[in-house]
Amino acid sequence: MTTLRAWLSDPNPASRRQARLGQAWLAWQRIRRNRLAMAGLVIVGLLLLVAAFAPLIAPHDPLTQDLSRRLLPPGTPGNLLGTDDFGRDILSRIIFGARITLYIIALVAVTAPVLGLLIGTVAGYFGGWVDATLMRLTDLFLAFPRLILALALVAVLGPGIENAVLAIALTAWPPYARVARAETLTVRSSDYIAAIRLQGASSPRIIAGHVVPMCLPSVIIRVTLDMAGVILIAAGLGFLGLGVLPPTPEWGLMISSGRKFLFEQWWVATMPGLAIFIVSLGFNLLGDGLRDVLDPRSASR
């Protein structure tokens, strides 16, 4: 353990890999000191574990209906968080719902920020008419409320989880493009970009190798903070019946179906709501912590 630590904090790394791992180790040290970020990390980590081991953890099958055990309150033996109107165990549905939530988050996280980063850096780096065209396109997307735009897209594409993800991703990229462009503008005029340009590097090489690494921290922070929003929009689409289709245990859909008995059987809608709340909170805390760790302005010198 001590030798590993010495190897990681060695001021004179002997290879590229050691240098990179050493930097990651330093970042980890910084985030470990931030209690709220650690709390966020624990929540997100739990979400991952629950999703991975859902069949082992869940006490019941999330889809099995038992109309003799309808709308049982929380604390009923065998149904810790109660049952819904079809007699399905809410805890099991929430546990399996974590998989769907995670699936949506993962798909959005690998599409929207990449698209935004690409458009933002290209616009910022080249400037001129390229910038004008790409940014007006971005403005176009930003001009619509996100949920409305997602609704319109789903209405065209048809409901379903992949289409929901696509709709969310297509509405989520403009803020990343803006962030990336702003960052690119400050990086573009720096001496190290002038130096690499003078070495004969091509524009794609400069953007991918030199500009993107500088934009990445702010985009990653933004993505983490947006995850809560993505969960909410996915839930919102589910709630409106335009996202995941029943009987899939999606959290938004569960809230939607519980709406009918909100006053008599409050737990049907409240339990998945709490799950959304906790996971959103986890991502927000993590994002705030990452901002302190990754922000080049606070970390560099």
Binding site: A19, S190, D191, A194, A195, G209, P213
Partner: peptide, 26 residues
């Protein structure tokens, strides 16, 4: 060219190795 401010002329997220080998790679 060698620039005035050595704090601004090296890419903060690249190792010295990468900074020096990139011209050769290009």
């Amino acid at each position: 060219m060698v620039f005035q401010d050595p704090y601004a002329s090296l890419h903060p997220r690249h190792t010295i190795d990468r900074t020096l080998s990139e011209p050769l790679a290009i």
